[in-house]
């Protein structure tokens, strides 16, 4: 029996009650990045700790991916016949603004400033039958 697995636990932790994004926080200056880097792009410090990011935020900017991404690197279905456009945007979380897929792909239903909540989307089934998931944001209402 397959189960849900994260595309990469380095950025998406799905082991808790709710999924959460993992970024990096500079211990010296407090700057938060997503993902976690070895050094801080703000103060050039190198003392970085992992930080769980908030799950709710607002839409900062968006588009809709209208053509199949090249594979590699894309892990999802990208045959022209199986491909469905998906939203991509930046969501302002309490700590940092992150780029993510959006579950909504209708331009008329996407608006800057709207409330968004973290969720997961299936990317593909791996060789063991696991459902490999990535992070996405959905309208909160």
């Amino acid at each position: 029996m397959g189960q849900q697995v994260s595309v990469n636990p380095f950025v998406l932790d799905i082991d808790g009650d709710e999924p959460c994004l993992v970024g990096g926080r500079c211990v010296d200056c407090g700057n938060v990045t997503f993902p976690r880097y070895a050094g801080c792009p703000k103060c050039a410090g190198s003392n970085i700790e992992p930080i769980e990011l908030g799950r709710e935020g607002t839409l900062w900017a968006w588009t809709v991916q209208g053509f199949p991404p090249k594979s590699p690197p894309y892990l999802g279905a990208n045959d022209a016949k199986d491909f469905h456009p998906f939203g991509v945007g930046y969501v302002e979380l309490p700590e940092v603004i992150v780029e993510a897929r959006l579950t909504e792909s209708e331009p008329g239903k996407l608006k800057e400033g709207m409330a968004m909540k973290l969720t997961m989307e299936s990317l593909f089934k791996d060789e063991e039958g696991n459902d490999v998931v990535t992070y996405a944001f959905a309208p909160a209402e």
Binding site: F10, P35, Y37, A38, P69, P73, Y74, L75, V132
Partner: peptide, 17 residues
């Protein structure tokens, strides 16, 4: 972006375009 030995989560998820 860093992958920490795992999958390319960024390009893999349909970003990096």
């Amino acid at each position: 972006h860093p992958v920490d030995g795992g999958r390319d989560w960024y390009g893999g998820s349909g970003m990096a375009i």
